[in-house]
Design a protein around this nucleic acid. Structure first.
Lengths: 332, 332
DNA sequence: CTGAAAGCGCTTACAG
DNA sequence: CTGAAAGCGCTTACAG
């Protein structure tokens, strides 16, 4: 199945010992230049490459990083993964990706698999269910096993003692609110399909901090959300919408248009979108850019750092990245 | 770093040999029920789990499948990956995912890494550059190394002798054309941002087969595509658009709307979209559903099958899946 | 400068 | 039914 050329076969062909071959290939000081040359030449000629599994067993390192994503079909996570990949693929590690599909049970299974000696480090965004039930024991357990782990995006309120990378959700919404306000919006509503998610709550709090007369339209069920949205919009009192997630954003934009409103004229909308596709669409929705690739890169960076450093005592980092607002057609 | 409990430690504690412990845990017939019990109990008590790296070295199998995707930010590939994951995660393999970012060079590197004993099988959709340059030697090489490989989505014209899963692109467009035609479209144009991609060509041919008076608007550069599209639409002669890919679809829809057309009224549009997001948008674009998850599942299924079967002689399969047309608001 | 030996943690013929 | 030995393909003290 694999290469038949091994250290042993090279050694036999050169009539020297396996140890000498190994050391030569690893450029050991102990070996004469001449021997190294001979060995390296033959190795190249025979197309030798070390059996990675054997190396891992010997070195007691898997050279793999486990990644757990809630849902790959969410473009936010796809972009985060791209960011992770960019950093990791330029290191000597590679990535095993699992999807929890927002399920706590599945998340546990993944973590369990990882912790059984399958990876050297873990990158995880917790599942919605985990977030809701606030069950974090399976994550905390990982610390006991001495496997470095870094969290991103959905970071539990109570600190778990892991490296974490998130975005300033609260402030992002405050900025969005202020932007709308400074552009003649008098009555701004908040729309969300993620009312229980950590990030959703922070965003809602950001909104609530800005108004004494809040209108919050929040349902996990998209059908319910849609109906409530339709009724609210029909009333015609709201002239500004801040949407907390991509689904709420698309839905809000759709209902507005369907009712004959032109987002950007009588009414404004700022939300969260998939930047690539939004760019090609009309109207371009004004949106909060979380720079998901950057989130991925930063998280991977921390983990790689921790994997390199022997010292356990580098302090736990809690990185908060800034978002930016990109103004499109749906606000002015 | 990992579990300190090993076969050796269990053996010592039980005062029996490592081989007996190993066999007990693997439910060998050779061992007495009583000993098995003792061993299993202690193993559970101590939380033993076999070192996967050691098992792999012994078994000469990595238990990993390498996946190469052109671009994870394309929702089509994200869904394919989800399909792959669904099948593979229920097997005893797991997935290492690499992204070629549409680059031939990067694709070669990934394949090279995989072929050096890092995976047991490979799933790949070739990069755009690979497709363009028609350079397939690096893929054919994999066959020599005896590593099963399956292609999906972008399948080279000349058969390479690998399992392949694709979609009936030609016929899909023919159906779309016929649908528009039967709904009073007189002058149907074809819009594409993937003129050189295999799938793009098949789709174009499908279109060309249906008309003597074709209007093909095809540019890889989205800006160019947009400008040409604007001019064509301004002329007002086209009353039906078939778009060959997600970018062309979104762009076409956007330009139509921006020029005051209502897709679904004076003019129709059928294209390719991200189903999840399209569902929440307005207008819902009528689209050809490729069932990307199914593509992923089928491809993974074939590979797993080939990995299980010892016999090299199961015939190469070339699976062509059917698409379906989902009618939304932009056609009737 | 080179090589024999032990070991990483397992499995599996083979003996007893 | 149990265990000693060899081996998967490497690396690395340790001797010479």
């Amino acid at each position: 199945m694999k290469n038949v050329v091994s250290l042993k076969s090279l050694a036999k062909e050169l009539n020297i010992s396996v140890s000498t071959v190994s050391k030569s290939l690893n450029d050991s000081e102990e070996i004469s230049e001449q021997t190294k040359e001979r060995v390296k030449n033959l190795a190249k000629l025979r197309g030798y490459s070390p059996n990675p599994i054997a190396v891992r067993l010997q070195k007691q390192k898997t050279m793999q990083i486990g990644v757990i994503l809630p849902n790959i079909e969410n473009p936010f996570f796809a972009s985060v993964l791209k960011g992770i990949d960019e950093l990791v693929s330029s290191s000597k590690y590679n990535i095993i990706t699992f999807f929890s599909n927002e399920s706590l049970e599945k998340e546990k299974e993944c973590l369990d698999f990882f912790s059984k000696g399958n990876v050297d480090g873990i990158l995880i965004c917790i599942a919605e269910e985990t977030n809701k039930k606030k069950t974090f024991d399976h994550i905390i357990d990982i610390k006991q096993k001495g496997i470095p782990l870094a969290l991103f995006d959905r970071i539990p309120m109570q600190p778990l003692g892991f490296d974490a990378v998130q975005v300033n959700d609260y402030e992002s919404i405050v900025s969005a609110y202020k932007y709308l306000e400074s552009n003649k919006c008098q009555n701004i509503a908040f729309v969300s399909s993620i009312p229980t998610l950590i990030v959703g709550r922070s965003r809602e709090e950001g909104y609530l901090s800005q108004t004494n007369n809040p209108t919050v339209i929040a349902f996990e069920d998209l059908e319910e959300l849609k109906i409530t949205l339709e009724n609210t919009i029909k009333q015609g009192e709201i002239d500004g919408f801040i949407a907390a997630d991509i689904n709420a954003t698309l839905l809000c934009n759709a209902v507005l248009q369907k009712q004959g409103f032109t987002p950007g004229k009588e009414v404004s909308l700022i939300g969260y979108v998939n930047a690539v596709q939004n760019d090609l669409s009309y109207p371009k929705i004004s949106y909060i850019d979380q720079h998901p690739q950057e989130i991925g890169k930063q998280t991977a960076k921390i983990l790689l750092l921790r994997l390199e450093s022997k010292l356990e005592d580098i302090p736990v980092s809690d990185i908060v990245l800034n978002t930016t607002i990109t103004i499109g057609d749906t606000s002015r």
